Amino acid sequence: MFKITALSTDDVRALQAGGPDAYGAVPERTVSTGAGNPCRHCLQNIPEGEEMLILAHRPFSETHPYAETGPIFLCAAPCERYEGAELPEILTTSPDYLIKGYGVDDRIAYGTGAITPTDQIGTAVKDIFARPDIAYIHVRSARNNCYQARIDRA
């Protein structure tokens, strides 16, 4: 069993209020083009024509060699945080995703990274979590390496 973990509401509300991103910059505001603009809080595509934020995100509390930073999108207006174990909308719109496991030290667990077809994510997650050294899994875009969501044990 596993659960999909979206960005925390407190962190997202701070960004929506103009708080700094991972590089200390104010998030950019723009308008969504529809598909391809996934919010990392509600884990849905931001509807076409809706205002959105683009910002640098580092899904780690500290900097270190494995602490990748990259662009993400958020709804500009408050949205509800995704809570669940089923694959959310943003993890069903691409044919595949990059998944990789991390240890409690926030380092990539070698041998876990793989471009995974969308319909095989559940099986791949179970296989990765079968390793005792895995604390959590990141899901990233297979095309652009953008952070999508975290997967935790349920």
Rank of each mutant, 00 (worst) to 15 (best):
R29M: 12
G24A: 14
R58D: 04
N145H: 13
K3V: 14
P65A: 01
S141K: 02
K126W: 12
I72L: 09
A130G: 12
N145T: 14
G19N: 08
F60T: 05
V139I: 03
H57M: 13
P27E: 05
H64Y: 07
E83C: 02
T118M: 11
S8D: 15
R143W: 00
V125C: 00
G18N: 06
A142I: 06
A35C: 05
T123A: 13
P20H: 12
R29W: 00
E83S: 05
I128C: 06
D21H: 11
T69Q: 07
P47D: 03
R150M: 00
T116F: 00
G24E: 08
I151D: 03
T92L: 10
T118I: 08
E62M: 14
D106P: 03
D133K: 07
G111H: 15
T116C: 06
P20R: 12
F73K: 07
R40A: 07
I46D: 03
L15D: 09
D133A: 04
I115T: 09
D119P: 09
E80L: 04
K100R: 15
A17L: 00
A67P: 08
G34K: 04
S32G: 02
P65Y: 10
I121P: 04
T93Q: 05
V12M: 08
I99G: 00
I121N: 05
L91Q: 05
D96C: 15
S8E: 15
G49T: 11
R131K: 10
Y82D: 09
G70N: 07
G49E: 07
K126I: 09
I108S: 01
T5E: 10
S32M: 07
I134T: 10
E86F: 11
T33K: 14
A77G: 10
Y110T: 12
S141C: 07
I128A: 01
P27T: 05
D96M: 14
S8Y: 02
G70D: 02
R40G: 01
P59L: 06
L91D: 04
A77K: 15
L74M: 04
E80Q: 13
H138I: 02
L87N: 01
V12T: 03
R140P: 00
D105L: 01
G49Q: 09
L98D: 03
I54E: 10
L91K: 06
C75F: 07
M1I: 13
A114E: 01
S8F: 04
A14I: 03
T112N: 00
L15C: 08
G84Y: 08
E89S: 06
V139A: 04
I151H: 01
K100L: 10
A14V: 11
G113P: 11
I115D: 09
D21T: 15
G84L: 10
C146F: 02
P38Q: 04
I137P: 01
E62N: 13
E28I: 14
P20L: 11
T30S: 11
C79L: 06
R40W: 09
L15V: 09
P47I: 05
P59E: 13
V12N: 06
V139W: 03
I121S: 03
D21M: 12
D133F: 08
E28R: 14
E83I: 12
P38D: 03
A149V: 01
Y147W: 14
F129H: 10
F60D: 08
N45G: 00
G24P: 06
T33D: 14
S8K: 10
G101N: 05
